[in-house]
């Protein structure tokens, strides 16, 4: 398969950046999107040009490193997949593919397709944890957890922190990311003591980082590689209101 690629190139955070067009030929339909970019990069290196920088690591959709807008869609047009899960067979031969980095104020582009997502880490540092000391804990089976709650907590905990929710949101809102963590802990007995403080601190940090407001159009859920449901955002709202009002 052959493709024309329009890729955002930006030297560093201060550079203004621009799109450049490249051609790649004889790509196997079984190759992944990132493997196609590997081929392009090999080509660029051979031509003595700098390869396209993009974050990636596990290449099996779990580390959350990769993430780019492919033809206007976060992680490409497929549902429930990260960029590394995208296969070239999902494109048509000869297609032009536009590749852009995540765009949001709190995610500055630091090179080509790489953005700085440390805002997510700072939200986690603000309260995305249960304050337990190593060792000072009861036996694992001492507190049963209703299976349904454990399953729903796991649904939320599946978040890989890739930032697609922010990228796909017209408002660059991080509500789905924050909701996933708040919801996970709100559903488990272990998360109860810090329940109110956690949600307030995480939302405050989210606002401080400059993420937008949720306008409930659910593009985040549609693009989430792990299919995390917006019902968790409803829970986040509920937790926040209860924490503020009671």
């Amino acid at each position: 398969m052959n493709f024309t690629l329009k890729i955002w190139r930006q030297k560093n955070q201060n550079d203004t950046g621009k799109f450049e067009t490249y051609e790649v030929r004889s790509i196997s339909p079984d190759a992944s999107f990132l493997e196609m970019l590997d081929v392009l990069n090999n080509q660029l290196v051979m031509e003595d040009r700098e390869p396209v920088a993009f974050d990636h690591d596990c290449r099996e959709g779990i580390c959350g490193s990769c993430g780019m807008m492919i033809n206007g869609r976060a992680h490409g047009k497929g549902r429930k997949q990260a960029t590394c899960d995208v296969r070239m067979r999902s494109f048509t031969d000869g297609q032009t593919i536009t590749v852009e980095p995540w765009r949001a104020n709190p995610f500055p582009v630091i090179k080509d397709l790489i953005v700085d997502r440390t805002a997510f880490d700072r939200i986690m540092q603000a309260g995305g944890f249960i304050s337990v000391r190593t060792g000072g804990v009861p036996d694992a089976n001492s507190t049963p957890v209703r299976k349904e709650n454990a399953e729903e907590a796991m649904d939320a905990a599946a978040c890989i922190g890739c930032g697609a929710c922010v990228a796909a949101c017209p408002n660059s809102s991080a509500m789905l990311f924050v909701a996933a963590k708040v919801s996970q802990f709100a559903l488990l007995p272990q998360g109860q003591p810090e329940r109110k403080e956690r949600v307030q601190k995480m939302v405050a940090q989210m606002d401080k980082e400059g993420f937008g407001n949720c306008s409930n159009n659910y593009a985040c859920e549609a693009e989430c590689p792990k299919g995390i449901s917006v019902t968790h955002i409803a829970r986040l709202n509920r937790e926040f209101l209860l924490a503020k009002l009671t």
Partner: peptide, 8 residues
């Protein structure tokens, strides 16, 4: 430890 941390 992991259960106490909220690992589901």
């Amino acid at each position: 430890q992991c259960v106490a941390q909220g690992v589901p």
